[in-house]
């Protein structure tokens, strides 16, 4: 019984790997693009872009500050675009 379960687990792992690995990079990049757009949305008000959902996104800013530096570098901005927040 245990041997059977072990074989099934191995099959599942093999199928999982077969499904995931060719597109791991493409999906990670797509997910990052979505995240980047979300970051822009959250920090838009601070950069002077009116944000109708600012009341809600303001709460998220402290949670996303850790990712801020990587994000602005990815957007091609050498230094932080926010006067009040100098991460580098």
């Amino acid at each position: 019984m245990a041997q059977k379960e072990g074989r099934l687990a191995r099959l599942k792992a093999l199928l999982e790997e077969f499904y995931v690995s060719p597109y791991r990079g493409a999906i990670a990049r797509a997910r990052r693009e979505e995240d980047d757009l979300f970051m822009l949305f959250v920090f838009s008000e601070l950069m002077g872009v009116p944000n109708p959902a600012a009341y809600y996104t303001l709460e998220l800013q402290p949670l996303l500050l850790e990712r801020f530096h990587d994000w602005h570098r990815r957007q091609g901005l050498e230094h932080s675009p926010l006067d009040g927040f100098r991460c580098c």
């Binding site: 093999l14 790997e17 077969f18 690995s21 060719p22 791991r24 990079g25 990670a28």
Partner: peptide, 15 residues
């Protein structure tokens, strides 16, 4: 762990 990740050779052959 995204693009670069050591993978089982049977899975890789399958791909």
């Amino acid at each position: 762990d995204i693009d670069y990740l050591p993978t089982n050779r049977i899975v890789l052959w399958g791909h």
